[in-house]
Write a protein that binds this DNA or RNA. Structure first.
Lengths: 125, 125
DNA sequence: GTATTTTCGATATGCATTGTCAATCGGGAG
DNA sequence: CTCCCGATTGACAATGCATATCGAAAATAC
């Protein structure tokens, strides 16, 4: 069974604190504040475990490494800040997607990505 | 200077014939109909050349290898068929994206991906 | 307390992509 | 048209990156 270790507690805390999709490297860097010599292998193992048990879900962002976020959120999409590289959630999605589907095609799912500057980066400069 | 070789002619022809975004492997497999022992390195080299001169543009599809398509098309997005794995273009895009941007964020760009079955795959079964 | 799982750190894998190099080809000079 | 040289090719090895695995040491659950 999955044990409750300081490393896994730290990783879970990182997700609950930041509340946005994180890459393995972001998880590592943030969790090291609590567990200084956390290994990247442990991050991958824990993420895999947490994904298998459904606590995390994988997120694919075009041209970026795999990220993960807490499962169970409402339907939403992602905003990528070109300056700081962070990914944020936003609620809602376009309502007129069905009109765009080509003749004869069947749409089962959709993804929307917005790119730009996040509030922090706009303020910073 | 760039020479006009049978390999590059074949690769350009593949893009003009298929008219959809192609991965290096798709290019290789299709172009081998004309140039049987075309090498993958040549595909990468040619694609890089064609991209540098602006004839191709790179396309990132979440969770998939890089693809390329002819430049100069009108604004459009991509449909990914879950059955055959091919990527198709579709025109137009949602008009109500601006409403979705979080407070204080600046949207500079957007991407939309649709997933499902293409017309061929729906017919096939 | 003891058996078992988990960790770390290094090393290994899988994959897409790039480099190497001898052999070949393209295309302008003659 | 033919020659010639540098650009290009194809096979293969090498890289880069994300991810997985290994074994000894440490931590956890019962």
């Amino acid at each position: 069974m999955q044990r409750d270790t300081v490393q896994r507690r730290a990783i879970r805390k990182v997700f609950k604190d930041l509340g946005r999709p994180l890459s393995p490297l972001e998880i590592l860097q943030t969790a090291r504040a609590q567990v200084p010599n956390l290994g990247i292998a442990t991050v991958y193992r824990s993420v895999k475990g947490l994904t298998d048990e459904g606590w995390l879900v994988p997120i694919d962002v075009p041209g970026e490494p795999q990220r993960y976020e807490l499962s169970g959120k409402d339907h939403h999409h992602h905003f990528s800040c070109r300056q700081c590289g962070r990914i944020f959630d936003f609620d809602g999605c376009p309502k007129d997607l069905a009109k765009l589907v080509p003749q004869g095609f069947l749409m089962e799912d959709h993804e929307v990505f917005l790119y730009g500057r996040c509030a922090d980066c706009r303020k910073a400069r």
